[in-house]
């Protein structure tokens, strides 16, 4: 039976171990956040374009957008990563590891955001366009000043969902050997033959998602001033 001092000793030992893990895991967090931030910044504008493509008056553009969404949503992100990094060089297109990740993630998330935004745009009343038209606004002004702000508000909960999923999807970049958070934890787990690093990684993910959840909540509140 362990005495109290033994128990305290064990606790201190565990804390010291976790502390020693932090630098490696933090460098994993940096990769995770990098993938996260780039994907978000690239995929949301791209998603708006995809949505506009889906709603285009031109049939060919509608079809292309539809095909794109089907291919991207219909295949695993892991497969897309492998295809872009290993497959494209076969036809002479070579991207670095990180660029491959950026391309695969942005294209993938743009498809999901595209569908969310399409739903949001379609839900805006026809009358809003007509009112803008009668006020002399151009199509661009109408979209940017009247439609988009309303779409952002309406789609924010669905977008928030995808943002949280993205935090966790970043772990897929292991397939290209990038040491994001989960892989960094796995390296430590295999080296030290213990589960502790994975638990710590889990806590890191929870902290990240908590922060983003809070930010998104505040955005929702900011947009709650109407309706």
């Amino acid at each position: 039976m362990g005495t109290i001092s033994e128990l305290m000793g064990n606790t201190v030992e565990l804390l010291n171990y976790v502390l020693a893990l932090l630098p490696a895991l933090m460098s994993g967090v940096v990769i995770t956040l990098k993938v996260f931030a780039f994907t978000l910044v690239l995929s949301i504008p791209l998603g708006i374009l995809v949505a506009l493509g889906r709603l285009s008056r031109l049939r060919i553009i509608r079809r292309l957008a539809q095909l794109y969404i089907w291919v991207v949503r219909g295949t695993p992100l892991l497969l897309q990563l492998i295809f872009i990094f290993f497959g494209l060089p076969m036809i002479g297109i070579v991207f670095s590891r990180f660029n491959s990740v950026m391309i695969a993630f942005s294209l993938n998330y743009a498809a999901y955001y595209g569908e969310i935004f399409r739903g949001g745009i379609a839900s805006i009343d026809r009358g809003q366009y007509e009112a803008a038209e009668m006020l002399g606004m151009s199509k661009r002004q109408t979209f940017l000043r009247v439609i988009l702000p309303q779409v952002i508000k309406r789609t924010l909960p669905a977008v928030a969902n995808e943002v949280i999923t993205l935090v966790k999807d970043t772990s897929l970049v292991y397939i290209l050997g990038l040491s994001e958070l989960l892989r960094a934890a796995k390296i430590a787990a295999n080296r030290d033959v213990t589960l502790a690093p994975l638990v710590v990684a889990g806590i890191f993910y929870l902290i990240l998602t908590a922060v983003f959840t809070k930010v998104l909540q505040q955005m929702e509140e900011r947009y709650a001033y109407y309706e």
Binding site: G127, E130, A131, V146, Q150, K153, Y226, E227
Partner: peptide
């Protein structure tokens, strides 16, 4: 008829 004000 339903005014179509911009809600935001």
């Amino acid at each position: 008829q339903n005014f179509n004000l911009f809600p935001h």
